[in-house]
Amino acid sequence: MLAVALAGDLDRAFERLVIAYRVRIVTFVARMLRDDARAEDVAQDVFVRAYRALQAYPAERRAALRLRSWLYAIARNLTHNAFRDAPPASEPLDYDDGNPRSALRDPEPGPENIVLREEAWGSVGAAVDRLSPALRDAFVMRYLDELSYDEIAESLEQPVGTVKASAHRGLMAVRAHLEKNDE
């Protein structure tokens, strides 16, 4: 419905788009960048970029957009650029071995057996921070932001199987980090 409104009168409908997605986008960008101060600026860039793209699109294309995955795709691209331009000081403890075949192993999430308490959320945040950017995208979109695998695949421009595997490997890595910290 919002996409249809954007197709009708972009300027009038644009604030609704910003309101609907700003918290998600700022949060996603902050998680990707691990830098709250820059997150707000980059998130604003996401919406400005979105507005200019929408201006250029014909109405039919605007009406047909899946807004959520489309905005995540813009956010993901801009955060990767920001990450590349100014990487954070601490190196992530990478669980990504860079081997695309390992990303295809074990695409289904395993059984859940760790009970998470509220006070443990700080360590979850730390575990998420340590994921490599490649795993963090899919993990955050899937498990924290609850996007469907279809949406994630669309945002990341990757096959569904690949994003399932990345999200799952991210989950395993987060669990491993938490278990190690529990010991």
Binding site: V23, V26, A43, W121, L144, V174
Partner: peptide
């Protein structure tokens, strides 16, 4: 850690935006 817990973590750690964001 269950997916539900992760979802709760995701929701609880959402950021607020500055008043002049829009």
């Amino acid at each position: 850690m269950s997916e539900t817990n992760l979802r709760d973590f995701g929701a609880a750690t959402r950021r607020s935006v500055a008043p002049d964001f829009t």
